[in-house]
Design a protein around this nucleic acid. Structure first.
Lengths: 223, 223
DNA sequence: GCCCGCGTTGAACACCTGTTTAACCTGCTG
DNA sequence: CAGCAGGTTAAACAGGTGTTCAACGCGGGC
């Protein structure tokens, strides 16, 4: 398959058929969920239904190819963002959200359906969160935690799951423009509450935390 | 339909066929998702496929009936919990989680798929959260917020979405016993980090909050 | 006893699914 | 030019889907 050997473009600049099918599948799956039919995907790619299974073996094979491609894009963009810097990353990504809309929609569908990609994704998110939080601790900006890994994991699940649920209920319709608008709306809606919670917590004092630590006395092994 | 006129039991104590079909549907949908076939549901209820559409008009009608039934159960149990008291409620519910496993699984699938029930559910959860938080504020336990409604909504989305994602990735398999175990595992896994975050926040100082408030100066209208 | 209505069934329908197969067209090579 | 290989297609297949329809059994009222 050409995804292993470069971008897979032709001499005339057009994408190769295999990649065109894969991209059409990513878009369709993102729009309609993984219940979308092979014939619809094939039609989107301007191709017969038999060709997609000829290239990918089966629908499951097609999904796997989509997963791998999206994951490679994530990793690529991630390293690009890391070399960029620390602070401006989020906002730069947010500005580019429209360009990546199909992949984000596909990711949301993956999280919705579960499976390997989803698992790998939140695993990577917890790893990233743990790293960022550790840097924040070192810089004296983030409070230390009794269990860094658990906190990172908790934050990854909560933020990702909250976003997933929000988009599930606000029906993302598909086209990049409305997706960008929706994304902006989501960020505007949750940011104030998130910043407030992160800055000052929810409870007045530590009594509940202390009471809880009485019942679960030993902090998990850190080594 | 008999769901409007009482529990729908027969003289001999057996459930009426309509209710048996509905319950089987709730269980099947919870286990296999809403893609489950009518024939499988009918077989679970010990009935022919034609009968379920004869009673509910269509598959969508069946889903609506399931939604309404689950929602009515929620409201019923909710009021029971409210009359019970404030503190012990959560733990009592947690003990009974096994009894309600099919309904919880159905709810998870509803949140996963979106739709009216899911919307109504998180709407009610934000309303409840807002009430609880207001009581907490009045009791001097919970910090006041710049925007009570937004905070309640944020917390509802985050906690519900986080739980949804967790269960999606940890595959809930179906049977009540393993569901209870999974639920327990989830609570054990997130509680420490949640209590810590709620007690002391994430950031050392208010500088980020203040910086954010510079950009969004006016707190949303409260009246 | 007859008939009617209700609960219920199994077969049929039209459609859609993923997948297989045989053939086609095209361009390159010998 | 023949022939072969690769890309591509249309048709067929086996199965599953929600839904419809005609018929059946059976209890109760006239």
């Amino acid at each position: 398959m050409s995804s292993d050997s470069g971008p897979g473009r032709r001499r005339d600049g057009e994408l190769a058929t295999v990649d065109r099918i894969r991209d059409a599948a990513i878009e369709r799956f993102g729009r309609d969920g993984f219940g979308a039919g092979l014939r619809a995907i094939a039609a989107d790619a301007g191709v017969a239904a038999g060709l997609v299974v000829h290239y990918f073996g089966s629908k499951q094979g097609l999904r796997r190819a989509c997963d791998e491609h999206v994951l490679s894009i994530i990793r690529h963009e991630k390293t690009k963002a890391l070399t960029d810097g620390s602070g401006s990353m989020m906002f730069a990504q947010l500005a580019e959200v429209e360009r990546f809309a199909p992949y984000l929609l596909y990711l949301l569908r993956s999280l919705q359906a579960g499976g390997e990609l989803a698992g790998a994704l939140i695993e990577q998110m917890t790893a990233d969160a743990e790293q960022y939080l550790a840097e924040g601790e070192a810089a004296g900006v983030v409070r230390p935690s009794r269990d860094r890994a658990a906190r990172a994991r908790y934050l990854a699940y909560q933020s990702t799951g909250g976003m997933l649920l929000w988009f599930t209920l606000h029906g993302s319709s598909g086209d990049p423009e409305s997706f960008r608008r929706l994304f902006r709306q989501y960020v505007d809606e949750i940011t104030p509450a998130a910043v407030e919670l992160f800055s000052q917590g929810l409870l007045i004092d530590r009594s509940m935390l202390d009471a809880f630590l009485m019942y679960v006395p030993d902090p998990p092994a850190q080594d």
